[in-house]
Simulated assay, not measured.
Amino acid sequence: MVCALGAAVCFGTATVLQAVATRTAGRGGGGDAALLLRALRQWRYLAGLALDGLGFLLQIAALRSIPIYAVGAALASSLAVTAVVAARLLRVRLTRSEWAAVAVVCGGLAMLGLASGAEGDRAGSTALKYVTLATAVAVLLLALAGGRLPERGRSLTLGLGAGFGFGVVEVTVRLIDGLAPSALLTNPATYALLLGGSAAFLLLTTALERGSVTAATAGMVMGETLGPAVVGVIWLGDRTREGMAWLAVLGFLVAVVGALLLARFGEAPVEGAQVGAAPVEAAPVEGA
């Protein structure tokens, strides 16, 4: 659980650092490639990338130790981290309800920490590995067609697709049982992880660029928490501590609801933004 929370802190902080760096770099001319090159020259952007990498390693460690539902809820809490860091570094004013949502997320994670047991003891069937691969391919196809979707509901759809892609990553980490090259190359879960993760980032970028940040982030939170949690419990044997299933379910729901209330922080607000102001378009950032 410490690794899962550490990953959330890394991802949430990286979002703000990369937002600051990208917006500073965006003051120059040129296209996307020029923007990326300028961003890569800023220490905040590089620090954000380093935090993303560290967060991913911590996520893997957590997924190999505790149930997927606990890791998914902890990763969703990165929105609370982003909100707190944005309030500190970007001087974004949080409403009382948003501070309450941060507290709700923390309370839900505390309940999960008390109730969650060890990871499930099932290795996952070959059929499940191919199902995750098929899901990853479907997410990739959605990503390729994302720009042509009808505008109505597009942000939510793309965000939900991104959530499923990140969910594929969570599940496949448990389905990869060996790091030998021969084992990795013959395991469908390996390709599902690569396709699902890449497609998820593409979908999230498209969603943030072309629509509502709040709707996209809400869809992502639902997709990356609910689906993997069900897979973990039903097919991988994830369980809770004896007699604490009710507390785990309550903690999971509380943490996810709290994260949804903070969905507008799926992309860090601009410096000095006021609560209730109109959304400001900005370059999408990683680690959301």
Results as ranks from 00 to 15, higher is better:
residue 64 R to K: 14
residue 251 G to T: 13
residue 205 T to R: 14
residue 188 P to S: 12
residue 273 A to E: 13
residue 108 G to T: 01
residue 236 L to G: 10
residue 288 A to K: 02
residue 239 R to I: 00
residue 130 Y to F: 14
residue 134 A to S: 11
residue 111 M to I: 04
residue 225 T to P: 05
residue 83 A to I: 09
residue 236 L to T: 08
residue 179 L to G: 00
residue 238 D to I: 07
residue 55 G to L: 07
residue 49 L to F: 01
residue 86 A to C: 06
residue 172 T to M: 04
residue 136 A to R: 09
residue 56 F to K: 04
residue 142 L to Q: 09
residue 100 A to D: 00
residue 216 A to P: 02
residue 89 L to C: 10
residue 156 L to W: 09
residue 57 L to T: 08
residue 232 G to L: 04
residue 125 S to H: 06
residue 62 A to R: 03
residue 65 S to Y: 04
residue 32 D to Y: 05
residue 69 Y to V: 12
residue 79 L to W: 02
residue 104 V to L: 14
residue 185 L to Q: 09
residue 76 A to P: 00
residue 82 T to C: 12
residue 142 L to R: 09
residue 271 E to R: 15
residue 233 V to S: 08
residue 184 L to T: 08
residue 256 V to M: 02
residue 53 G to V: 05
residue 38 R to M: 03
residue 121 D to I: 09
residue 44 R to W: 02
residue 125 S to F: 07
residue 58 L to Y: 01
residue 240 T to S: 15
residue 4 A to Y: 00
residue 230 V to Q: 07
residue 40 L to T: 10
residue 138 A to F: 00
residue 39 A to V: 02
residue 106 C to T: 11
residue 245 A to D: 14
residue 118 A to E: 14
residue 274 Q to S: 05
residue 194 L to N: 13
residue 51 L to P: 13
residue 178 G to M: 10
residue 66 I to F: 12
residue 66 I to A: 13
residue 71 V to D: 10
residue 220 M to C: 15
residue 120 G to M: 02
residue 266 G to P: 03
residue 77 S to I: 00
residue 21 A to M: 01
residue 88 R to C: 12
residue 147 G to E: 15
residue 30 G to M: 05
residue 75 L to K: 02
residue 167 G to F: 01
residue 11 F to Y: 13
residue 59 Q to P: 03
residue 148 R to E: 09
residue 232 G to F: 06
residue 152 R to S: 14
residue 83 A to G: 06
residue 201 F to W: 11
residue 150 P to D: 11
residue 57 L to R: 04
residue 218 A to S: 15
residue 54 L to V: 15
residue 217 T to S: 12
residue 230 V to D: 08
residue 244 M to D: 08
residue 220 M to H: 07
residue 52 D to R: 07
residue 162 A to W: 02
residue 195 L to P: 10
residue 103 A to D: 12
residue 33 A to D: 11
residue 265 F to C: 14
residue 263 A to M: 00
residue 38 R to Q: 06
residue 5 L to K: 02
residue 160 L to Q: 05
residue 24 T to F: 09
residue 230 V to A: 15
residue 211 G to E: 04
residue 279 P to C: 00
residue 66 I to W: 12
residue 255 A to L: 03
